[in-house]
Design a protein around this nucleic acid. Sequence first.
DNA 1: GACCATATTGGCACTCGGTCTCATTTGGCA
DNA 2: TGCCAAATGAGACCGAGTGCCAATATGGTC
Lengths: 212, 212
Amino acid sequence: MTAAPRPQDRSLPLRERKKLRTRRALADAALRLFGEQGFDATTLEELVDAVEVSKSTFFRTFPAKEAVAIEAEVELWSACLAALAERPLTGLVLAELQGVLAEVTAALDPDWDERYAATRELVRSTPALLSYMAHYRNEVEQQIIARLAERLDLPADDLRLRVLAQLTITAWSVSARDWVHSTDRGDRSSLTARLARTFAAIPAGLELRAGG
Amino acid sequence: MTAAPRPQDRSLPLRERKKLRTRRALADAALRLFGEQGFDATTLEELVDAVEVSKSTFFRTFPAKEAVAIEAEVELWSACLAALAERPLTGLVLAELQGVLAEVTAALDPDWDERYAATRELVRSTPALLSYMAHYRNEVEQQIIARLAERLDLPADDLRLRVLAQLTITAWSVSARDWVHSTDRGDRSSLTARLARTFAAIPAGLELRAGG
DNA sequence: GACCATATTGGCACTCGGTCTCATTTGGCA
DNA sequence: TGCCAAATGAGACCGAGTGCCAATATGGTC
């Protein structure tokens, strides 16, 4: 299942725990600072000063300023990709992908909800983050395709895999947006329910007709 | 039908014609320089020096260094969005979207093929451009959704519209990639045929099953 | 053709994200 | 304790992108 490793995990070597700690510290400080002053108005120097690390360390931990703002999203998809590699696949692939999302969201850190909500709000109101999110989800799409291609023994450029990966990400995006804006954010089972409804509504898109 | 306005068009005021000329000059020089030296290795200064305009003018014409490299893609979708606003919509919406692409690609400049092929090759081999393309297509997706929502009198957050817009862009992407790499690049009718095949193959994605 | 209001351009200083290099520190382990 | 490898910090450096102001070109008007 491979959930995100936590800094408290005493089984990890000290070095790794430290790295995870600064990573989390950076992500937390980022959500706070970006939320207070805005993403653009916050310089990297401010952020690394707040956490007391150097700019060098920042870029060894995150590939870009934008990345630290969407850690919660990254945690989600990292877990999904790990789950996708292990889970036995039977029947409709789209249903399996839905299952992976349900399984993974149930196992995330308790404080993930809040961080994810903050992330989405930040992304919504920041063009640079919206753009970076598109970039990141594109990479996730490629990864999902690669995993599926391997598991199903299909070529990586099979159109069907691309369609499935894309629809999965979209289904997540609209379900989560809905959930975050709803009153039962924090209730994971309501998220699962929303996912089920969204996945069920997908096929109707293909058959949509114009009135005239 | 509103194809891309051309600098030779004498009906346009001189001012507009000049702007279009520099725009095209920048896009052409960009494809050449980026192709020769690579995107990252070519500085903006080199580019604007080659066209003999200032950096200021560049950023008044394009929103980013990446944008000038994907002009051919932008021309395509601009024409599509214009067509989508005028075209009468009847029957399956997905089929209409396919129709728009077919109609638009048939009407593009004769030299568009070559520029588009160069663009795709450049994008394929340049991470920064891949990322920018994801960003741009995301914007196009929103535009398509907005147009469809208006025409079909549906809310802009209707999941079905998002699915349709996304599948259309994906169908274009794989059809065009295939076409560009094929021997009959330059034959627009073969592109139309590929589009038809790709659109027809979409529904099979939803029903893909795992062997086990 | 001269003139004026306005749109456009060029030049330039400046900010800041991101890369690179090298000296310094820290954790892992015998 | 002492050694090696890995991580960190410091700072120079590059180039994309922004803002400001002066210079220039355009399209009507008299």
